[in-house]
Structures are given as C-alpha cells and as structure tokens.
C-alpha cells in the first residue's frame, strides 16, 4: 500500500437549495485518502454520503473548498476536463449496476474505453480480460437482462476496471444483492484493492463490509469523521 496522497480535500462544502431551503450537504470536510486504500463511507440516509462520492468522482462541483485527485484540482476544471478525468482516472460502480440494457456484457465493458479512443480489436481484448478477471468471460455476449444481479454487478466492476483507474468509487454496490452474492462482490473489491493496489472508496450501510476497509469514514449532517 502506497502512502502517496490520492485525494486531498480541504474545507469542502456543498450546499444547494431544496424547496426554497438551503441544504448544507457537506460542511467543511477536510481529509486525505492515499493510494491503495480501501475506504468505507457510512452514515445515515441524507447525511451526505452520495454528495461526497459525487465530489470525489468529479460529477459535481463544491460550493467552496478544494478537492484534488492525483494533482488535478477538480473544483477548477472545466466540464470537458472533468469528463476527461472521469474517463481516465475514475471507475464507477452503482447500486443499480447502471449497465446499458441494449448492449452485451462485453460491449458494456467496452463503453468505458470509448472516451480513450481505444481501437476495436484492443478494446475487445481488454474488455474480455476484464470480464475474465471477474469470472464472466463465458457471459460476454449476454445482455444485462439475461444476467443475475450479482453477474450484472460484476460486469459493472469489469467496466470500472478496464480503464485501469486510479480509484474505484462504489455507491452501495451490494445494496440490491443477497447475502451470498454480496460477499462475492465485496471479496472481489477487496481482492482488487489488495492484489492490484487499486484504491477503492465505497459507500455502504453494511458494517461487515466496513470492517474489511482500511479506513472508515462516517458522515452525518454533512460532517465527516474518521473512525
């Protein structure tokens, strides 16, 4: 595990208006996440977990404060540059898998390589390797609807992996899975972190998942505490 800083967050705040009321989703968050860490984020619903994950993923910009990812100051980047950062450095895993329903498992994985302009042959090769790493090579030509929830999430993990990201951001990746499948997915993420050194930040309600993390963050009412 490297000790170099991947994320450096200082006085990060995010507020927005909801029903004419100001909501402070994040309040002066300051923290660092190093390369190779497995970080869990827990907290009550509406506490700011997803907002923090969106800031980490460059999907939204803070109201104030700064956030850097491997040297890129995300709050200052244009939308085009942020898109480029997401394309190269960040892998996303969603609770609902978010696969493209009309594309096969292989093609879904390939979508992550489209922004990088990888040619077709290379793209297919890398996507197939990613599917093999999640033990789904034999389901490459299946549509998402033909796969179980666990298999779909593994395709989503392969899609996040295929671009060799600096970090994987997972938003409740086991939220829709049964216990057995949940363990398989967590094992897979832990394995990626430990064996491939990929930084994994995951939002979870599950304390058993949090126990396997190297760092546990708790967020409530927009305030982050480290446990």
């Amino acid at each position: 595990m490297s000790n170099t800083v991947l994320y450096s967050i200082k006085d990060l705040s995010k507020s927005y208006s909801q029903n004419n009321k100001k909501v402070n989703a994040l309040r002066n968050v300051t923290l660092e996440i190093n390369h190779g860490e497995l970080v869990s984020i827990q907290g009550p619903t509406g506490g700011g977990k997803s907002t923090l994950l969106q800031m980490l993923g460059g999907l939204d910009k803070p109201s104030s404060g700064s956030i850097s990812l491997a040297g890129d100051q995300l709050e200052t980047l244009s939308e085009v540059k942020l898109t480029d950062v997401r394309a190269r450095k960040i892998g996303f895993i969603f609770q609902n898998y978010n696969l493209i329903p009309t594309l096969t498992a292989l093609e879904n994985v390939q979508t992550a390589l489209v922004p990088q302009g990888v040619n077709k042959a290379n793209s297919e090769k890398r996507a197939m390797a990613a599917l093999e790493s999640v033990s789904l090579a034999d389901r490459a030509t299946h549509l998402p609807a033909e796969l179980s929830g666990g298999q779909q999430q593994r395709v989503a993990i392969a899609r996040a992996l295929v671009k060799n990201p600096e970090v994987i951001l997972a938003d409740e990746p086991t939220g829709n899975l049964d216990e057995e499948t949940r363990d398989q997915i967590i094992d897979l993420l832990v394995d990626l972190n430990r064996n491939q050194g990929i930084t994994v930040i995951l939002v979870t309600h599950d304390s058993s998942v949090a126990k396997r993390a190297s760092k546990n963050l708790h967020i409530g009412n927009g305030v982050v505490t480290t446990r």
């Binding site: 999907l59 997401r86 190269r88 892998g91 979508t111």
Partner: peptide, 16 residues
C-alpha cells in the same frame, strides 16, 4: 436518463 447519465459519468463527452 440513467443510461445517458452513466455514460457521462464514465467519461463520454456530451458531443458523443
């Protein structure tokens, strides 16, 4: 919307 939002999240540019 979820599909297009996901593509944007994984780095697809708006013009694509």
């Amino acid at each position: 919307i979820r599909e297009l939002g996901t593509l944007k999240a994984i780095g697809w540019k708006t013009n694509r």
